[in-house]
Amino acid sequence: MLAKRLSKLLFKYFSIFLLLLINSCSNSNFYEHKVLIYGTILEFKFYDTDLDQANQAIDQIVNKLNDLNKKFHPWKNSLISQFNKTHQIENCDQDFINIIQTAKYYENLTYSTFNPAIGKLIEIWGFHDDVIKGQVPNEEDINKILLTQPSLNQLLITDNSISSNNFFLKIDLGGMIKGLALDMAKQTYQDIGIKNVLTNFGGNIYAHGKPGKRLWEVAIQNPHNNKLLLAKLKMQPGSAIGTSGDYEKYFIHDHQKYSHLINPKNGQAFSIYSSATVLINPDENDVGIKSDIFSKPLYFSENLKETSKSLQLNNFFITNHENHIIISKSFADEIIWLFNEGDFIVEVI
């Protein structure tokens, strides 16, 4: 009788133990959410966050992005597409003017190697369309635009209007909009009081806080094969990472690959590099915007050391078409390479 009762008791505790074991395997501290916005994936990974707060943040960020899109879509119905047709718009709100001013600031900071005024060049290369046409423009057309030296400095900006006399100037903020979105997300988290979340907008990542005792960990895709990973990285709270490359939007014509990244200096759609990755330190302002913009000057750089110095950029690497990786010294210490043996040769500068 006693043995029977004892065994029943044992069985009961053993079942509880089993249940606990199963429970402990699930990750209840994380909340992940994905949203598709105009063909770009916006991905959140919250840690230890109130579900209502998380959803509130997601809603606010999505609303802000919708607003951005209404204002800045370079060819669909937006304020900017209207400007690109008429070269004059009025009744702009303060946010809109601020963003144009920010773009202008970074154009000057990068000596126009990031140039949001070359929308016309991007258009004649056929990238201002939902489906890439794959046309190579003739040199004459390119030079016609380059001769006018399109720049946001040619804009007349007032409190509520922008206009320009250069009719070859078309604004395309595609090179900074993802970063801008990350900075808006950062502001939203701060306003709501969310402490730990990783935000990925179309590949650009901003790390807010950290998940418990460890840091957020990010893998970097191999630019020559999107099924493979190139490297892995731990992200300090508040840092942001961005990559520009010729592998996302491109077309191939006569065995030559042309990407949507257009060199503002010569109007060409190719570079000796295949990708450029930058990591922006947490203590800097505009981490998101910088992570988006600063990869462009590197991607078209003729002297990596000089370019990175002028941008005060410590953590970056570039890959070229000959499977070489050139990485800054401080970044090399932080990164863990995951590529296949022999796939790349790493050079530290």
């Binding site: 990974k45 990542i205 960990e217 895709q221």
Partner: peptide, 11 residues
């Protein structure tokens, strides 16, 4: 293993 897991992918 040098990578047990990661949270997101940069591309």
């Amino acid at each position: 293993s040098k990578t047990l897991s990661y949270d997101s992918t940069n591309y």
